[in-house]
Design a protein around this nucleic acid. Sequence first.
DNA 1: AATCCACAGGAAGCCCGGGAAC
DNA 2: GTTCCCGGGCTTCCTGTGGATT
Length: 410
Amino acid sequence: MGRSIFAKHIDKRNKIVKNKSILQTSYLPEALPHRSGEIDEIATIIASAFEGDKPSNILIFGQPGTGKTAVMNFIGNELRKEDPDGERCVYVYINCEIVDTQYGILQNIGNQIITDFEKRIPTGWSLEKVYSETKNYIDVQNKVFVIVLDEVDRLVVKSGDDVLYHLSKINEDLKQSKLSLVGISNNTKFVEFLDPRVKSRLGEEKKIFYPYSAQQLGDILRSRAELAFEPGGLEDGVISLCAALSAQEQGDARRALSLLRIAAEIAERNGDATVAEAHVKSAKSKIELDVVSETVKALTQQSKTVLMSIIHNTKNDNKTMTTGDVYSTYNELCDVLHVTVLTQRRVTDLISELDMLGIIHARVKSFGRAGRTKEIELSIPQEICRMLEDDESMRLLKNYRPPKQTTLSC
DNA sequence: AATCCACAGGAAGCCCGGGAAC
DNA sequence: GTTCCCGGGCTTCCTGTGGATT
């Protein structure tokens, strides 16, 4: 049997990580450190449905990576353990980032709970029919339904609050079953855009998830690392460093995990036997670099051209420049790139946008008689500049040499 | 104190594509 | 299908401004 081309890479690679999927953010662990309080509170609310009460709807708020989704899915798993055949309770999870239309939501709920394949909801019914069909199906089952709408603010932005209106009043139409609606959002303000009735019904119970502290992040990482890494694969201080770095960034557990995961990947690729603090540091800069390069790639042609003008000025030994400098370079580059020239007014706006994205640094400064303008500096690393130069949008610039700085002597 | 530079950045309105309403 | 509306990108026109210079 011939060895595949991958074999030598797979064999040679140092194994530090025993099970990579555990470090993935999608992995749902057996236990969620530092969230037992939240789990209890939410479980209590949902459990009341089993005692015949009308369950309260819940809204969960919290910054990214504070465990909102994990907690709900954990509860979902517990419900299934409690009731393996789904005789009393059904857990439905929908991510509104993915399913973001009224129809999609109703159809998705319906199809997750309708076991009979023949009766599945197709696309093409009227909204009312999907709603009543789903509602009837829910009611005849005589069970408790827990419906989780993750990233619910996305849904409201994209298709308004009509679905929430219907779903939140569905309990009034149900005779046997109970339905508990759980909305998850990282934006506290989105409720202000809701119809007041929806707002009060949906937010009967509110729960805020606060960011993890460095200590707590450390515990989370440790519990996963034990399972994921080979014994002795991690040097002392690696976990604390990941935790500390992520705690600075709003206590995001997701970030902390990817920091650790990427650090491990770097270590393995280097052929090192253990993950060290240095790997974490390079993982951090890799993540940051990735974010910036994605941002730059996503810019419009115009913004890229403006940015390129700033890069060109920087290269011309002109590290700090004014709006006027940028605009004249921009004019030259537009000519070479066959890009339409925008007005200076517009370009100042584009410069401000680049500033807000953190790609450049710009501040207004007065030069007295020499006028009042923005002082602009590049604030991205060389690699990103090179990446932009190789970008398809800059193809025509390949062989372009900027004209020499002509110092006017009259 | 007055002047004046080189813009900043607000206001209003145009154009265009896309999605909802008719 | 047509119409209406909306938002984003953009232009035009404009007033405002900090401080070196006069």
